[in-house]
């Protein structure tokens, strides 16, 4: 007769657990299906026809895809490095000081690329860069590098600033007390303590650059296709799992880097 008395769970809310589970599954299911069909033996994107690496082999031999992938990596690396260096310098200048003139405007500027819709930035860049291109005749990768660097800066800035704010000011005071001039203090104390923040900042900048499609698509000149712009160009055509294979290849570095950032932050 006696029913087991169940303790009243203070934190539970009816249905929330189901919603959370469904939400997370829904976040992954479409991506998983996309990845699964990149291994499809037939050219269908909806009917499973057996397992095959064929589309990966095909993508691997498609110079358009490989060149686009290599250019994506190149661009993400260069823009990531520039953005990280600039963001580190800016974060050091802007954190841990009393309020100063120009603080708000600097902060707004740094974060400005986060706020403006990408398409608006992309088109305004298109207009300006087109004018510069016809004036100078230069149509190299410089335009993409500067555009990517600009929108990567706020992402690189975020973890670096967080790390700086969490840092004990006394450490630098202690270094100065122990005969380190400002430069030595920076090299021996600030930079090493900042390390994980800088690594996380670079990784985020790298991922953001790798993901960009709108700005790249409008700013690029001939021969500057990245993997996302290549994929966007495929929409109107008959899509085959080859695009899925390319997408799967692009997913891997992003997921690895984000997991790495997560682990770095947790260790802190």
């Amino acid at each position: 007769m006696a029913t087991k008395a169940k303790a009243f769970d203070l934190k539970a809310q009816p249905g929330f657990s189901a919603i959370a589970r469904i939400a997370v599954v829904s976040l992954y299911l479409p991506i998983i299906i996309l990845v699964v069909f990149s291994f499809n033996a037939t050219s269908s994107l909806g009917v499973w026809g057996g397992f095959s690496f064929g589309w990966f082999v095909m993508a691997w031999h498609n110079d358009l895809i490989i060149n686009a992938a290599l250019f994506s990596l190149f661009l993400a690396t260069v823009a990531g490095v520039f953005a990280t260096i600039m963001a580190t310098m800016a974060a050091i200048a802007m954190t841990r000081s009393d309020a100063y003139r120009g603080q708000t405007i600097s902060y707004a500027l740094i974060n400005q690329p986060l706020i403006v819709p990408e398409i608006v930035t992309a088109i305004s860049l298109l207009i300006v860069f087109a004018a510069v291109k016809s004036a100078t005749g230069y149509s190299g990768t410089g335009y993409l590098v500067i555009a990517h660097t600009a929108f990567c800066i706020p992402f690189a800035y975020l973890p670096i600033r967080a790390r700086l704010e969490g840092m004990d000011l006394n450490l630098e005071t202690a270094a100065a007390d122990l005969y380190a001039d400002p430069w030595k203090t920076f090299v021996h104390v600030t930079l090493p303590r900042l390390g994980p923040g800088i690594v996380a900042g670079f990784m985020l900048a790298f991922v953001v650059s790798l993901d960009d499609v709108v700005i790249t698509d409008l700013v690029k000149s001939g021969g500057q296709e990245t993997l996302p712009t290549f994929m966007l160009g495929q929409i109107r055509r008959d899509m085959t799992p080859e695009v899925n294979a390319a997408a799967t290849m692009l997913l891997i570095p992003s997921i690895l880097l984000v997991t790495a950032v997560h682990l770095i932050n947790r260790k802190k």
């Binding site: 004990d168 006394n170 450490l171 005071t173 202690a174 270094a175 007390d177 122990l178 021996h188 104390v189 090493p192 303590r193 390390g195």
Partner: peptide, 12 residues
């Protein structure tokens, strides 16, 4: 030289 209240040791 100073001994700081929270020691300010370099953790790295």
């Amino acid at each position: 030289n100073t001994v700081f209240q929270n020691y300010a040791l370099f953790a790295h």
